[in-house]
Amino acid sequence: MACGAFQGAPHPALRVFELATGRPGDLDLREAEPAPAPRRGRPRLGVAAREVTLLPRHWDWLAAQPGGASAVLRRLVDQARKTGADGDARRRRTEAAYGFMVEMAGDAPDFEEASRALFAGDRDRLAALIAPWPTDIQGQILELLDGEAA
């Protein structure tokens, strides 16, 4: 049965967005495959080996720290994640709102100015600039920006 919004539309379309990024997403409507049986042996710890390029003075400092370079780097990353969590979350919300804005209102009036207000963190100006846009689009942009979309 068709939804009332799609009735009478010549080619009904449904757009899906990932709330974490504000970007269009895909729906995988295939049946889920059964989970693989657990394997015997030692469980994987999730450690990924990657290359890190540092200057000699950085390597010297790391070598002098207790626990070795890997342990120190893990502690530094954890500390940075804790202290920068608010800024990172705000940046991700702004990028998600912008991604949705581009897809749904990229040709709307005052889009460029609204984008500037968004990235300047001027929510009041953004709200005023997008006021003429469709209500649902306005609401979703502001929800993504405020972190209320879940």
Rank of each mutant, 00 (worst) to 15 (best):
R44I: 08
R40V: 09
A117P: 11
L55N: 14
T135E: 14
L76D: 00
H58R: 00
R92H: 08
A13W: 04
G87P: 03
R40W: 09
P134A: 03
L142V: 12
T83C: 01
L129A: 05
V47F: 08
R23P: 06
I141S: 13
A120H: 02
R44L: 12
G147F: 00
W59A: 01
G4A: 14
D136F: 00
A32H: 05
M101R: 10
R39H: 10
Q140D: 14
A37H: 15
R39V: 12
T94I: 06
G106V: 06
A2N: 10
P38T: 02
A32L: 05
D110F: 06
F17R: 05
E33L: 13
W61Y: 15
G99S: 06
A150E: 12
Y98I: 00
D110R: 12
G106K: 06
Q79L: 08
P56D: 12
G99Y: 10
A120V: 01
A5S: 12
S115C: 07
P24G: 04
G147Q: 05
R74K: 13
T94N: 05
R90H: 08
W61M: 00
A127I: 02
P38W: 01
A35L: 12
L145H: 07
I137S: 08
D110L: 04
L142W: 04
A96I: 03
A114G: 03
R40M: 12
A20Y: 01
I141N: 13
L27A: 11
A71K: 12
L27T: 09
G46N: 09
L145N: 07
Q140M: 15
A2H: 11
A131Y: 06
P24D: 07
A69T: 03
A127R: 08
A149Y: 06
G22L: 04
A48R: 15
A150S: 15
P43R: 09
R93L: 06
L45C: 08
A37R: 15
A35N: 05
A5Q: 11
A37K: 14
A108L: 03
L73H: 13
R15D: 15
A35M: 14
M101G: 14
R75V: 00
A49T: 14
P12T: 00
P109C: 01
V77E: 00
P12V: 00
L144A: 06
P134I: 02
R30L: 06
P24E: 11
P134D: 08
L73N: 10
D122T: 01
G84E: 08
A89L: 11
A96R: 10
A80T: 09
L145V: 11
Q79P: 03
W59Y: 08
L14P: 03
P56S: 00
A32M: 03
W133H: 09
E18C: 11
P109K: 02
R125S: 07
F6E: 09
F17N: 02
A96T: 05
A49N: 13
Y98R: 13
G22S: 06
I137D: 11
M1T: 03
C3M: 06
L27Q: 12
A69Q: 13
A149T: 14
G68C: 06
T83P: 02
